[in-house]
Design a protein around this nucleic acid. Structure first.
Length: 435
RNA sequence: UCCUCGGUAGCUCAGCUGGUAGAGCAAGCGGCUGUUAACCGCUGGGUCGUAGGUUCGAGUCCUACCCGGGGAGCCA
């Protein structure tokens, strides 16, 4: 074949209309009749229909061979790009040459329906299919948009460690591992490290995998998930809410701009995302209890919300909703006390619309050394594990605040997926460690 | 850990009050010049999750266990 032909990609076919090009990819599927064959060719950037007419190819042998190429074989083709409304995507390739680089065995994922479990067992192959491809493309945009947003806002990326020496919020949900002659744990959160970094750089964030050994089997849980955690020095709970809503609006704007085709593949209505503009509603924990009571769901003061409660609250608003000022017992030891009500701490959660639940948790951190010492004792935590953390209050303590956003819940909401395992390339859940 | 639903061909499933295994798709062969999860014909394909039990006879009923889906608690 003529290797001098320009190499095209499916995404850029529009630049080669009426030209002969080469394309390298995989056979996604196809149909054929006696004298014409349609090959769906996938190259990673998209899928294009190749049309192979018996009269157009170099010899009949190539036509007969091309009809029988097994699904997902890697192929190199040549042909003329043509605009045609009959083709999905608007362009098709009038093939003159089809060459198999590596013939595939019997491919397990067929065009018919499969169960979740079967597909996840073949996740390494399932990634090639349209829906996972669209979802993971959006995930890539979200990560890009998050980093861009924080970079524009003047935040410094400071990577937090994955191995941590001590159980900071109880051991039951931590993965334990041997670390030479000691025990180590996989990180649950980079927050305490970000508090240290904020005193060095001002505004910082970390972004990486975190681990929870919770035996949770729900559509919102993974044992390994990605979390982005910004932390700001000289900041309070209101700064947290403002940063969070600007971040979410910015990311959604990027996805709407870059991934319109992916959202269409997922049949996700962009109008629901276009409506997500700041400011988001802000209600206190006490007000949230009233919202629930009006819907006939009465909770005692101090109770945390279940998944169903979060959905009721979310459905009462058109946008994501902040719930702030929580009972001290419901939140972690490092939360700053509310100066106006000592039963409360300055924590804030953001509940996503449409039942996607809590996607952000954060708040203002306690900056008083004596208050923190009391809280560590009250929570029965080993004080020696927090010596370095207490140093942050001994050497120039400032009001500071931050939050963590769960990437998979965020992407799941944007994509409208049923389960968070669909939005991470290789999910880790209680019952799945491979592929 | 608890509650709940499920495990039958490569896949998705049907299989009635117990009577000896089915469909569609996939695969293989053949046909068809505009297909969109193409269509038409033919062919091959099974330790019914595992181990016991009841019965003349178990995919079907009983017991235990294993595996998976969904949910609760906890969380992002």
């Amino acid at each position: 074949m003529q290797t001098t032909l320009p190499l095209a990609s499916v995404k850029k076919l529009g630049e080669f209309v009426d030209q002969d090009v080469r394309l390298r990819g995989w056979l996604y599927g196809g149909r054929s009749s006696g004298k014409i064959a349609f090959l769906m060719i996938r190259d990673g950037t998209g899928v294009v229909q190749g049309v192979l007419a018996k009269s157009d190819v170099e010899d009949e042998e190539m036509f007969q061979a091309a009809r029988k190429i097994p699904q997902e074989s890697s192929i190199i083709v040549a042909g003329k790009v043509r605009q045609d409304d009959r083709a999905p995507g608007g362009y098709e390739l009038l093939l003159s040459h089809v060459e198999t680089y590596s013939e595939a065995g019997e491919y397990p994922i067929t065009p018919k329906e499969h169960g979740q479990s079967f597909l996840m067992d073949h996740r390494h192959l399932w990634l090639r299919s349209r829906l996972p491809h669209a979802i993971l493309s959006i995930r890539s945009s979200v990560e890009f948009a998050l980093r861009s947003f924080f970079d524009r806002e003047g935040f410094t990326l400071v990577d937090a460690p994955i191995f941590t020496p001590n159980a900071c919020e109880g051991t039951s949900t931590l993965f334990q591992t041997d670390y030479f002659d000691k025990q180590a744990y996989l990180t649950q959160s980079g927050q305490l490290y970000m508090e240290a970094a904020a005193a060095a750089f001002g505004n910082v964030y970390c972004f990486g995998p975190t681990f929870r050994a919770e035996k949770s089997k729900t559509r919102r849980h993974l044992t390994e998930f990605w979390m982005l955690e910004p932390e700001m020095a000289w900041a309070d709970i209101d700064d947290v809410m403002q940063l969070a809503e600007n971040m979410i609006a910015s990311v959604i704007g990027t996805v709407l701009e870059r991934n319109a085709a992916d959202l269409a593949t997922l049949e996700r209505d962009p109008a629901k995302l276009e409506a997500i503009r700041p400011p988001f509603p802000r209600i206190t924990y006490a007000e949230a209890l009233e919202v629930l009571a009006k819907q006939g769901k009465t909770l005692a003061w101090g109770d945390d919300f279940g998944g169903e409660d979060e959905t009721i609250i979310a459905n009462s608003f058109a946008k994501p909703v902040f719930v702030h000022r929580w009972p001290r017992e419901a939140k972690a030891f490092y939360m700053a006390p509310d100066p106006e009500d000592d039963r409360l701490v300055l924590g804030v959660d953001l509940i996503a619309p449409e039942g996607y639940g809590e996607i952000i948790g954060g708040g203002q951190r306690a900056d008083s050394l004596t208050y923190l010492e009391e809280q560590i004792a009250a929570h029965d935590l080993p004080p020696e594990a927090f010596e370095w953390y207490m140093d942050l209050r001994r050497f120039g303590s400032v009001p500071h605040a931050g939050f963590g956003i769960g990437l998979e819940r965020f992407v799941g909401w944007i994509c409208g997926t049923h389960h968070v395992r669909e939005v991470i390339p290789f999910p880790r859940t209680m019952n799945r460690l491979s592929p």
